[in-house]
Amino acid sequence: MVRYGAIAVGLFFAGWLFISFLIGAVAYVSEPPVPTVEHEFHEAPKHVSFSFDGPLGKYDQAQLQRGFQVFKEVCSACHSLKFVAFRDLAALGYNEAEVKAIAKQWAIKTPSVDPATGEASTREPVPSDYFPKPFANNVAAAAANNNAIPPDLSLMTKARHHGSAYVYSLITGYQAQPAELLKEFPDSKTPEGLHYNPYFANLNLAMAPPLSADGQVTYGDGTKPTVDQMAQDVAAFLTWTAEPKLENRRRAGLATILFLLIATGLAYMSYQNIWADKKKAAA
């Protein structure tokens, strides 16, 4: 009885799926799906190598400091970094006094309350503060940026596929809209106020090219600040902001796996020993 019912249900589901497939196949052949402009022109992030690539890679502190400088002088005007605190910068190799000075001199102030009047005011950030946001809220951010809200950058490299390469590609990927694109998709001209970038999901990005010229920042360590170099550095810095514990994680992982290999080897020998009688008896 169960089997007859089952066969009936099975015939229904399988049959209807097969009919759906036929309907879909006919539609697919008679009206092939039209490729979209994103499908045709979106590009995967460029290949770029970082010191932290590979399972045992580490951050390059000098590069992180340079990247932080780019963030400070360029990105931080519009983008927040709300999950990172000034105190975290110690991991970049700054000492306590330097961290304190960076916080104190930060261009954006931390919201506070006037102790005398209780009214909203601001104060200089201290190391325990998180990076203050450039805009008080999303409405203010949208109003100041042509209705596009600059996303928080703390987790950006983890929030995109191949995030580090993505950030680098996006920054260096601005270009004029290809002629073939306009020929094939005449309606897809980049709207006024947006910028064409094939590494961005929908190809047109509200952010203007943030790094437009070599030497936009001046590096203290003598590294030549080409656009390419600055883009790599800021991508490395944002990888650190997204995964500050990367080096701890890999160190702990190495120790754990070495330990487990030995322990598992012993467990295997123990297992063979215990079974030796049974296998001998059988063989």
């Binding site: 330990f259 030995i262 020998m269 123990s270």
Partner: peptide, 13 residues
């Protein structure tokens, strides 16, 4: 010895 070593390792872990 091997059995004791294996169990000890599990304990340390």
């Amino acid at each position: 010895f091997i059995n004791i070593a294996a169990v000890s390792f599990a304990g340390v872990g």
